[in-house]
Design a binder for these strands. Structure first.
Length: 726
DNA sequence: GAGCACTGC
């Protein structure tokens, strides 16, 4: 991770413009001094000393693996080196992908500043809902998911001469799919040039030979490319050290180069014996550091909100037993569902003389970098999502971290000076850990991945050259799922128009299908709102200390028919309020900020998660644009709620459940016994038949986001699935 | 009567 790639939660990004009240002259000398400082900072980065060698490596190798340790400067400097070396001739661009939005934005800003250009001109970024690029952009930072979307419109990624995949070791689904795709594109692009060299009459013969040599996927790409010529694509994969070999092997023994980093030394201390209770051990270690070690803040990695809150309470309890002079210790929690204002507390210095203990989830591993950390406590566990393709069920389980993860965590202590990391397990246990975390693609629902690949022209999914292939069972299950949704034809091709329409929408395939159906059921307005609200983290925010108040507030929106209509009610309440303000105050720009403030207040009063609501509104407007372009009819069913419920049944027929005599439900697709989640408005409602959107295993198997339907609708609206079963 | 790590289009 480059040192400037991240600075706190997303919400902080807007406040980076610095105002200056100085007259022009001194501002000029200010900026001159700043330019000089930046220049010397750049020159002192480890990567600066190997600049010429790196450019040479990229010139001579089409694929290069770069192992860059933290602080090497690879993310900010390499694109600039390549730009200056002429890699953007002919108007081509260098694309750099990041797994996270914040990183793409902050790095782009930094590089624009280093280049002395306005953001969005030569240097820009593009992430969902926020595009700061123009036709003159040559160095473009983006999220890996966005480049995948771009590939749907431009399968040869023809505007890029170089693509750099940064943080590849994190192995997100997007990174993995992208790597497979890029390998293909690169093949096709270099072959298209070989074609170019041949004379025209030899061309068709030559192509058949190449198709045999380069595999099935190239065939499908070549068909689309049909005679077009592309300059070769340079591919650079940047990764942390432990995984370099895997990438090199995947790319046919590609050359790997190493760039040293700049990180302070971190002492690793292990427990002598295995600990019985890691929470207890954590507590003991916090106080051991507090009472015996030099000043400096502590970062503790825990698995979730519950652990964080429990440790917080225990620390307070222990503190009161200490003499007054030793009580100068303050705890600060951080996890993703915490409202942004509270997240910001980790960046505030502790009161004078106090030591700060940050109790964090994985969010502090990569997403948020907290300054001032000298000590890290790593109990060695993480909460991870796992997915059972056969049951179609997700669950969250606590598992040991990987070696790479342990390394990443300890690195957090050495950003500003030497630090210490306390691993709460014996050293021989470390040796037993997996090298790296299991790639996400092996533990998630593949429907979306497969739909994307099909849309990119990859027909043979099982034969696709994944870096790490998902299980055959998982692939088959998702193919089946897409087939039942009507996205695939009998011979497993993307169907026309449904499959292609679904692939265009940046949503879960089942939600995309719901939108298409809704236009036929005359309730697309309602469905647009529904899928936007279902696509974000929980809309309702229920703090433990105000449980009753929150419940009362939620009742105002609740619909007797279920959670889907309840979500529509929330969205429409907000829309109505904003509409009313527009009538009252007009539509001036100055109102925008006031509206945001108004919305924040309203959310707080109504126990709605403002961040989630904003996100849902963004998704809503993006998706609305898409369906308009697709020519779907957008209309509302008005008060005809029945029509909407029938549409929900037609869309989510795969997720239907029937009440059983003893009050539990049976999921019809898998036969599992499930219960309605207590957060649902239908909890204890005794609805005979329901559809749901999520099946999660926690203490029990719960279904979430539930709406009551009539059982007979299923055979009527999804006969291809239910007629044979009943 | 329950709690869910983190990303992303």
């Amino acid at each position: 991770m480059p040192s400037m790639a991240q600075n706190g939660p997303r919400s902080n990004l807007q406040n980076q413009k610095k105002q200056s009240n100085f007259p022009n002259k001194s501002r000029n000398s200010d900026s001159l001094a700043r330019r000089e400082r930046i220049k010397s900072q750049r020159l002192s980065l480890p990567i600066a000393s190997v600049k010429e060698r790196l450019i040479e490596e990229v010139k001579t190798h089409d694929i290069l693996i770069i192992v860059g340790e933290t602080g090497s400067g690879k993310t900010t400097q390499l694109p600039q080196f390549l730009f200056n070396a002429g890699f953007c001739r002919d108007g081509k661009a260098i694309g750099i992908t990041q797994p996270r939005r914040v990183a793409a934005v902050t790095v782009a800003k930094r590089v624009a500043e280093e280049c002395g250009v306005e953001l969005g001109q030569k240097v820009g970024y593009s992430i969902r809902f926020d595009d700061k690029t123009s036709s003159s952009t040559r160095i473009k930072y983006m999220t890996d998911g966005l480049l995948l979307r771009e590939a749907l419109l431009d399968p040869y990624l023809s505007r890029y001469s170089v693509i750099i995949v940064d943080e590849a070791h994190e192995r997100t689904v997007h990174t993995d799919v992208l790597l497979g795709l890029l390998k293909n594109v690169q093949n096709v692009r270099s072959n298209s040039m070989k074609d170019h060299v041949n004379t025209d009459d030899k061309k068709s013969k030559n192509r058949t030979v190449q198709e045999k040599g380069t595999g099935a996927q190239c065939t499908s790409f070549l068909k689309q490319g049909h005679g077009r010529k592309f300059p070769p694509l340079k591919l650079i994969i940047m990764s942390a050290s432990l995984d370099a070999r895997v990438f090199s092997e995947y790319f046919g023994g590609a050359r790997a180069v190493h760039i040293e980093g700049r990180q302070h030394h971190v002492d690793i201390l292990y427990a002598l014996h295995p600990v019985q209770d890691y929470l207890d051990a954590t507590l003991v270690t916090i106080f051991q550091i507090h009472l015996e070690e030099a000043p400096g803040d502590i970062l503790v990695f825990l698995t979730g909100q519950e652990e964080i809150e429990s440790i917080e309470g225990l620390v307070q309890e222990q503190l009161h037993k200490l003499p007054e002079a030793n009580r100068k210790l303050s705890t600060v929690p951080i996890f993703s569902s915490l409202p942004s204002e509270q997240q910001m507390r980790v960046f505030m210095p502790a009161s004078p003389g106090h030591r700060k203990v940050i109790l964090a989830t994985n969010i502090a591993e990569t997403s948020v970098t907290i300054p001032g950390i000298k000590y890290v406590i790593d109990p060695g566990f993480v909460k991870a999502r796992s997915y059972d393709p056969v049951k179609g069920m997700e669950s969250l389980i606590i598992i040991p971290t990987s070696k790479a993860q342990a390394l990443q965590r300890s690195g957090r202590a050495g950003r500003e000076g030497p630090g210490k990391c306390f691993r709460l397990y014996p050293e021989h246990e470390f040796e037993k850990l997996e090298d790296s975390t299991k790639p996400e693609i092996k533990r998630c629902n593949l429907s979306n991945v497969i739909l994307q690949l099909k849309a990119l022209g990859v027909d043979d999914i099982i034969g696709f050259d994944f870096m790490e292939k998902p299980s055959r069972a998982a692939i088959i299950k998702s193919l089946e799922h897409l087939f039942l949704l009507g996205a695939l034809t009998d011979d497993c091709k993307l169907s026309e128009p449904v499959g292609h329409q679904m692939a265009r929408l940046p949503l879960d395939p089942i939600y995309s299908k719901a939108l298409i159906l809704a236009s036929q059921f005359n309730c697309l307005e309602e469905m647009l709102i529904t899928v936007a609200m279902l696509s974000v983290e929980s809309i309702f925010y229920t703090p433990r200390e105000k449980l009753d108040e929150a419940r009362t507030a939620a009742k105002c929106f609740s619909s007797p028919d279920g959670d889907h209509l309840t979500l529509v009610n929330v969205y429409r309440a907000v829309d109505g309020l904003l509409e009313k303000r527009k009538m009252e105050f007009g539509n001036e720009k100055s109102l925008k900020g006031k509206n945001e403030k108004f919305l924040r207040k309203w959310c707080k009063e109504n126990f709605i998660n403002g961040r989630s609501l904003r996100h849902a509104r963004d998704i809503h407007s993006q998706i609305r644009g898409h369906v308009e372009q697709m020519g779907l009819r957008i209309s509302s069913c008005g008060d005809d709620v029945l029509q909407f419920r029938r549409c929900l049944a037609a869309s989510f027929f795969l997720n239907a459940a029937l009440k059983q005599p003893e009050g539990t439900y049976r999921a019809l697709a898998s036969g599992q016994v499930v219960q309605i989640h207590p957060s649902s408005v239908l909890f204890q409602s005794k609805a005979e038949c329901v559809i749901f959107n999520e099946l999660v295993q926690t203490t029990k198997k719960y279904i979430r986001n539930v709406t009551r339907i009539d059982y007979l609708w299923l055979t009527e609206l999804a006969p291809h699935y239910y007629a044979s079963q009943s």
